[in-house]
Write a protein that binds this DNA or RNA. Structure first.
Length: 149
DNA sequence: CCCTGATTCGC
DNA sequence: GCGAATCAGG
């Protein structure tokens, strides 16, 4: 039986959880029987509000950002080489087996029959997996030729 | 596309 | 008072 009434007990839980920093959806799941919209609505009605993601229209800017900060080290971009995954049938993802759930990063020479694809799980909205999406975004690695200082 | 809170408004 | 729908942002 799902009780969706805001009993005093549930309201107390709501206040507690909200103050502890849980998100509305988290609280909704915890309490059960209510949606996150219900939680948010109740929170506002209770007078609690504002905490968590600042989706406020107003952006309280700091007067002057002291940009004199000392940065320890800029972590170098990790080079990640991803090997193609082997499918369940023991083969690689080929042009025949490639589908929307596979990274389309080409591996090998397209003119050869060994040509296949990475086949990993692609990032949403991307034809490539996360690693290859990065590589695609930065076409080639930086060369250490003569670098204009 | 996933998430977040904010607001509106019919109930 | 309630919360789904919608909005606005990350």
């Amino acid at each position: 039986m799902t009780q969706a009434n805001w009993t005093d007990d549930r309201v107390e839980q709501l206040k507690s959880l909200w103050t502890e920093g849980l998100s509305a959806s988290q609280i909704a799941r915890t309490l059960g029987g209510v949606t996150r919209n219900a939680v948010i609505g109740k929170v506002h009605r209770l007078g609690l509000a504002g905490r968590a993601s600042p989706s406020r229209v107003e952006r309280p800017r700091l007067p002057t950002t002291p940009r004199v900060s000392i940065r320890p080290h800029v972590p170098p971009a990790p080079i990640i080489e991803e090997d193609p995954v082997t499918l369940d049938d023991g083969n690689f993802a080929t042009v025949l087996t490639i589908n929307d759930r596979m990274c389309r990063w080409p591996i090998g020479d397209p003119s050869e029959n060994e040509f296949h694809f990475c086949g990993r799980k692609p990032k949403s909205g991307s034809p490539y997996c996360e690693a290859h999406a990065r590589k695609a975004y930065q076409p080639q690695q930086q060369r250490r030729d003569k670098l204009a200082s």
